[in-house]
């Protein structure tokens, strides 16, 4: 139904109606265009406010902000270095991706190649729904359910088992308190798992069936079809999806804050407590009284934003390339 106001036609005639339409058209166009430009300014606004807020800390500590791991909000000392949160962010995300990527790809292969058609939609939908569960739920579950179990396993089995092996004995040095880098990594892995599985499944589905059928026709096994046809064809998309997941893991706050242990130190052991950029901000920002303290936290936020910006931009570019390739 098109609503053309009849009054415009009867009162002012055709010219007036056309002019009115032109005016309202221009106005609506301007409105939509400003909304679109608003999105661009939003990203710029993020960067500007973060740089503005971080200026005090960054100009005071300079390069040592990135190399020092002393984090002391005591009003008489006020020394801040971002090394421990950066280290924690990178290591928890690395643990998460190491665990989640193979499992997520396995689920995607299962969904596209092995699963009976009837189950495919059910399991696929379940996984997509679970990708939407709020992150605080994962954090809570990690704190109350997973951490005690892990503490027991790590103290009684893992740490003793590797105590004689050179490198592993350092990486898994006890004692474990249940809360630490490894627990946070595992929770993050569970969180990004549905995401990786869903994205990889979508990417696998872009492989033309003809290619797979041809390989099967030559006598290739499922494993050979997946590793030599599906993965090479969809490689760019899988990497893009994995980097999207990495972007989420890097910036994830609530799931990590509950189980990381919140101790701003760099330790070699994965069982030791640590901190991440986002959990430091979440824990301290509302209580930060000193200007220098909040500025240091905003500087952490700026670092996180720049890192995730790079990772997400790379991910999107890869996925764009993938789409172009699929369209060609």
């Amino acid at each position: 139904m098109v609503n053309i106001p009849m009054s415009a036609v009867s009162i002012g005639g055709r010219d007036l109606a056309v002019r009115r339409f032109a005016a309202s058209d221009a106005f609506f166009r301007l409105l939509t265009r400003s909304a679109a430009y608003f999105v661009l300014t939003l990203l710029g606004g993020f960067l500007l406010t973060l740089v503005f807020g971080a200026w005090l800390a960054l100009s005071t500590f300079g390069i040592s902000f990135f190399t020092s791991q002393s984090w002391n909000p005591n009003p008489d000392i006020l020394k801040f270095g971002a090394l421990a949160p950066i280290y924690g962010t990178v290591v928890t995300s690395a643990v998460a991706m190491t665990l989640a990527l193979p499992v997520g790809l396995g689920i995607a292969v299962f969904l596209t190649e092995l699963c009976p058609l009837r189950l495919r939609r059910v399991i696929g939908t379940a996984i997509e729904l679970l990708a939407g569960v709020p992150s605080i739920i994962y954090g809570m579950w990690g704190l109350f359910v997973l951490a005690p179990v892990l503490q027991n396993l790590e103290n009684n089995y893992l740490a003793p088992a590797v105590s004689e092996i050179p490198i592993l004995s350092t990486v898994f040095a006890g004692p474990s308190y249940g809360q630490g880098i490894l627990t946070a990594g595992i929770i993050l892995a569970i969180m990004v798992l549905p995401f990786i599985a869903a994205v990889s499944r979508d990417v696998f589905q872009t492989v033309p069936p003809v290619l797979k059928e041809a390989a099967f026709g030559l006598g290739a096994t499922t494993r050979e079809v997946v590793t030599r046809v599906v993965l090479p064809y969809s490689r760019v998309g899988v990497i893009g999806g994995a980097m999207l997941a990495l972007g989420r893991a890097l910036g994830e706050t609530m799931a990590v804050t509950f189980v990381i242990g919140n101790d701003p130190k760099v330790r070699a052991s994965l069982l030791a407590p640590g901190t991440t950029i986002s959990s430091s901000i979440a824990n301290e920002f509302a209580e930060a009284k000193e200007a220098m303290h909040s500025s240091a936290l905003v500087a952490l936020g700026l670092i996180l934003f720049v890192i995730t910006l790079i990772v997400l931009a790379a991910a999107r570019l890869l996925l764009l390339r993938m789409n172009k390739q699929a369209g060609a």
Binding site: G247, L250, L304, F305, T308, L312
Partner: peptide
């Protein structure tokens, strides 16, 4: 769409 939500809080 996938920017860390805590950054939005800071902003």
């Amino acid at each position: 769409l996938s920017a860390p939500s805590i950054i939005i809080g800071l902003f």
